[in-house]
């Protein structure tokens, strides 16, 4: 009598069925984790071993060795190494300026990394697109600027920020009007971020930032406004 409800409506069969389903979910989860872990582990080990082969190239760059030697050292030795080489180059470029940077930039161009990233800009895969944009930004790939600008209107908002960030790394004032255009489509919460990216352009950005803070003053908290006014004071004085 006691378990009429349980036994009447939730038959043993049903409970056994649920148990089996859950058991398989558990089994799948464990297998998935196991595979995921091993994949990450093996990949990381492989990548690290391949990296070692290309890192000496950075030494050559720092030593002002001729470009041919650098290119030789950076040329892919095995299928699939391109990803590794690009990482090695970008990791160094992030922290460098001046001649070593220029040398690595030239290497990116000559070894086809720039072209490849440019092609990936039109990829449907957001991750690939984002990475390509980031890479082009770090390379300060001037030839990519127009392509990125053309892409801007079609991107979702988070990708827009990635694109604008890479434009601000390329740092050609030609891109500034497009920041202005994007400002019209962005919600006010994102405008301080936009302005901070524009600051990267230095003095040429000042008139654009002024216009932005005049047009949408409500989007800038007092602290940010004050800072922006300070940064653009030089322009206002003209």
């Amino acid at each position: 009598m006691l378990s009429l409800a349980l036994q009447g409506h939730f038959s043993l069969d049903m409970i056994v069925f649920t148990t089996i389903v859950l058991f398989w979910i558990v089994a799948i989860l464990i297998t998935y984790m196991l595979l995921l872990r091993s994949y990450y582990y093996l990949r990381a080990r492989y990548m690290a071993s391949r990296r070692k082969l290309y890192e000496p190239a950075i030494e050559l760059v720092l030593l002002d060795e001729p470009q041919e030697k650098v290119l030789d050292a950076l040329a892919p030795k095995r299928w699939g190494d391109r990803e590794v080489i690009l990482r090695v180059i970008l990791d160094s470029m992030r922290h460098l300026e001046g001649p070593p940077f220029d040398s690595l930039q030239a290497a990116c161009f000559k070894l086809g990394f720039m072209d490849r990233a440019l092609k990936q800009l039109s990829s449907r895969n957001k991750l690939r697109r984002g990475r390509a944009m980031e890479a082009l930004g770090i390379m300060r790939a001037h030839p990519a600027m127009l392509a990125i600008i053309m892409l801007l209107p079609k991107q979702p908002r988070d990708m827009k920020l990635v694109a604008l960030r890479s434009l601000s790394l390329i740092r050609d004032p030609f891109a500034l009007p497009y920041y202005e255009r994007e400002a019209e489509t962005l919600p006010p919460t994102m405008l301080p971020r936009l302005a901070s990216l524009m600051l990267e352009f230095g003095p040429p950005a000042q008139p654009f930032i002024r216009t932005l803070i005049n047009d949408r003053p409500e989007a800038f908290p007092p602290r940010v406004m004050k800072l922006l006014l300070q940064e653009t004071a030089h322009y206002a004085a003209l």
Partner: peptide, 20 residues
């Protein structure tokens, strides 16, 4: 009041749901 196999089966459900 509850059959043993039923109880065990029900406990299995609870157990696996928790584990998932």
């Amino acid at each position: 009041a509850i059959e043993t196999d039923f109880a065990i089966a029900f406990m299995f459900v609870a157990f696996f749901a928790g584990a998932v």
